[in-house]
């Protein structure tokens, strides 16, 4: 069961990775608006803005 001494730190690293990912997504505004992106995916792609 000495594997625990390796597995547990790995688990902690995974947790911190998950939290970092969450923090990153938060900073990018991924959770600011939870309703609109769900309908925006229905729109056809448009040619890029010429300006």
């Amino acid at each position: 069961m000495s594997i625990l001494f390796i597995a547990l730190p790995i688990a902690l690293i995974l947790v911190s990775t998950a939290i970092t990912a969450f923090w990153w997504a938060m900073r990018r505004g991924q959770f600011d608006d939870l309703d609109t992106p769900a309908v925006r995916i229905l729109h056809d792609d448009e040619p890029p803005n010429p300006s």
Partner: peptide, 20 residues
Amino acid sequence: RSEDRRHLLRIGIAGAIAGN
């Protein structure tokens, strides 16, 4: 916006840690 984000971030961190 930053207030909302802080709230969510706290819940996110607390949830991840509490689960572990």
